[in-house]
């Protein structure tokens, strides 16, 4: 990760504070700016307040107070002085910047009819630092790609438990290939720019040499577009949620493409209980279900099931399948 990419998003004053703090940016997860509130970092899984000299404190009273000008200047830099270019993204509450970092914003919502038109008076900014952890899917790979090729796989986890990071690494490994598996062409539908972290259409994260990315496109529509246009062997999507997404997964699986997807959930039972996902389970669309541990151990695989619901791996019952710690 380029430290400069992150620092350049902030006004000179905050840039100076962050620069003086001697942070390891690989351990930095979030930088939060709230008007008239202290500057807060999420660093190594804990909250840190920085004062005007870049010193780290655990007491909020010591933190540097963010001014409205700081927020306004940050927005200028984040949008490259071009807020108009990010109108659509701002409507969704976030935009992706160079380096794949995601900048979430909140303020006063402007609603027209029932539709959210824009966000004004932005007073809250959350910069989520993108991390790629090469090798974090190495031990999971044999469960997902067996001798016959890649299996339709659904990664199940609660938010912020590392499912996107794990999916990203699986994509890279499948695309690049390994000693035992030749590389395959992978199509990624990256509706929220989280997987590739695309900036101006160019993925900022390494997704492998045989990967095509359709950035900012609705998942259901994007999956069908990729099947028709890029003939991928594998299609990857993050966070399938709607009935339309599920139907598109079924269609794509029926087209001969393998599907890698993620979904919010806590367990296999949870997946079976949800009406839309239950259909996928009963029809045995997916051949592997990967359940991640909670936020206490992000990125750690708890269980792996096959399409019939047979447990292939249980961390509590056997050897531990520990992936590198991630943040989704």
């Amino acid at each position: 990760m380029k430290r400069e990419d992150v620092l350049k998003l902030f006004p000179v004053k905050i840039r100076d504070i962050l620069g003086r703090a001697h942070l390891d940016f690989n351990r930095l997860q979030e930088i939060r700016l709230r008007v008239n509130r202290p500057l807060i970092l999420l660093y190594d899984g804990r909250e840190v307040f920085l004062d005007g000299f870049g010193r780290q404190w655990s007491m909020r009273q010591k933190g540097y107070t963010v001014t409205p000008e700081d927020i306004a200047e940050t927005l200028e830099y984040v949008s490259s002085y071009s807020m108009y270019a990010y109108e659509e993204e701002l409507r969704q509450g976030y935009l992706t910047v160079r380096g794949g970092h995601r900048v979430g914003v909140a303020g006063r919502a402007v609603v027209e009819g029932e539709k959210l038109k824009s966000v004004q008076y932005i007073s809250f900014v959350n910069v989520r630092i993108a991390h790629q952890i090469p090798g974090c899917a190495d031990r999971l790979l044999p469960y997902v790609a067996d001798g016959d090729g890649v299996c339709h796989t659904l990664i199940v986890s609660a938010p912020r438990c590392g499912k996107t990071t794990l999916l990203r690494e699986l994509i890279r490994r499948i695309s690049d290939g390994t000693d035992s598996h030749p590389g395959l062409s992978v199509g990624v539908v990256d509706e929220r720019s989280e997987i590739g972290g695309c900036y101006l259409g160019i993925p900022q994260n390494d997704l492998g040499v045989r990967t095509d990315v359709l950035d900012g496109c609705p998942k259901a529509q994007g999956m069908m577009m990729l099947v028709r246009s890029m003939s991928p062997a594998v299609i990857a999507v993050d966070e399938i949620a709607t009935g339309e997404d599920i139907r598109a997964v079924e269609t794509v699986a029926g087209c001969g493409c393998k599907v890698l997807a993620t979904v919010h959930g806590s367990s296999m039972e949870d997946v079976r209980r949800r009406p839309m996902l239950e259909k996928l389970v009963s029809e045995r669309i997916f051949e592997r279900y990967v359940i991640l541990d909670g936020a206490a151990a992000p990125g750690r695989v708890r269980e792996v099931y096959d399409g019939r619901g047979t447990c292939l791996y249980d961390r509590r019952g056997g050897s531990r399948l520990v992936l590198a710690e991630t943040g989704s």
């Binding site: 949008s79 490259s80 270019a85």
Partner: peptide, 11 residues
């Protein structure tokens, strides 16, 4: 460029 490309100004 602004009307059809929606690119940021520096680019």
């Amino acid at each position: 460029e602004i009307a059809y490309g929606r690119q940021p100004l520096p680019d």
